[in-house]
């Protein structure tokens, strides 16, 4: 009894250290990578779009499914991949068409596109704003953009996606959009860029 009595302070002190150590150790053990700070890797935390603000809507990437939604090949009578074409519509107007990509399941576009022939005919000068491969839209409550993607065949064109996206749902920066399961697309990536970014200075 007297041994227990004399050991009580040490037991209590050890219990305190044990509590702290077991909580720290337990949480640390539960994490996949113990020495990595808990980064929210999935979240790029972009800013929400601002109402009455102009943004470039840049379609960065589209990925077609291996076959059409009905299971048929993209290329009639051949085995070529789809020829990606994309339109962006806003307020009932088709406001932008991206340049075609041929025989690709994954098609990407760069933010800047320079027409060399036009550049030469214009005397070697270019307005940077005109080289941006994206249309401008103004964000307003309840408004949406429509992105239409299709495979351009010589005879028939197959619409792979016709999707209306509310502007308020988009974020500044990269937006990874999952197309509907019934569409012919597996992936769609759209980037929103604030028009007020001082573009020429940045370039």
């Amino acid at each position: 009894m007297s041994v227990t009595h004399s050991k009580a302070p040490a037991i209590m002190a050890a219990a305190v250290i044990g509590i702290v150590a077991s909580i720290v150790g337990g949480v640390w053990w539960l994490r996949a990578s113990p020495t990595t700070p808990a980064e929210t890797i999935a979240s790029t935390a972009p800013a929400a779009v601002l109402l009455d603000h102009d943004y470039y809507v840049f379609v960065r990437l589209v990925e077609f499914k291996p076959t059409k939604p009905n299971g048929a090949r993209w290329d009639r009578g051949g085995d070529s991949g789809p020829d990606a074409n994309a339109h962006i519509s806003w307020r009932g107007n088709r406001i932008f068409k991206l340049p075609s990509r041929t025989d690709q399941l994954i098609s990407t576009w760069d933010l800047f596109r320079v027409d060399i022939a036009k550049l030469i005919t214009d005397g070697g000068k270019i307005d940077i704003e005109s080289a941006i491969n994206a249309p401008l839209v103004r964000v307003a409550r309840g408004e949406a953009i429509t992105i239409e993607v299709w495979d351009n065949d010589a005879m028939f064109s197959d619409v792979a996606l016709n999707m209306s996206i509310p502007l308020a749902d988009l974020r500044e920066g990269r937006n990874d959009i999952t197309p509907p399961a019934s569409s012919g697309l597996a992936r769609l990536q759209v980037i929103l860029i604030d028009r007020q970014t001082p573009l020429p200075r940045r370039i």
């Binding site: 800013a47 920066g173 980037i191």
Partner: peptide
């Protein structure tokens, strides 16, 4: 946030725009 260049930085270097979360211990270990 990168001020007026925010969109561009997020576009060109998305990793720089990531939100980081630290605990006292993970911050010290980093």
């Amino acid at each position: 946030h990168f001020g007026a260049y925010d969109s561009w930085v997020r576009l060109l270097r998305p990793s720089m725009g990531r939100t980081s979360e630290y605990s006292v211990l993970s911050g010290i270990l980093t």
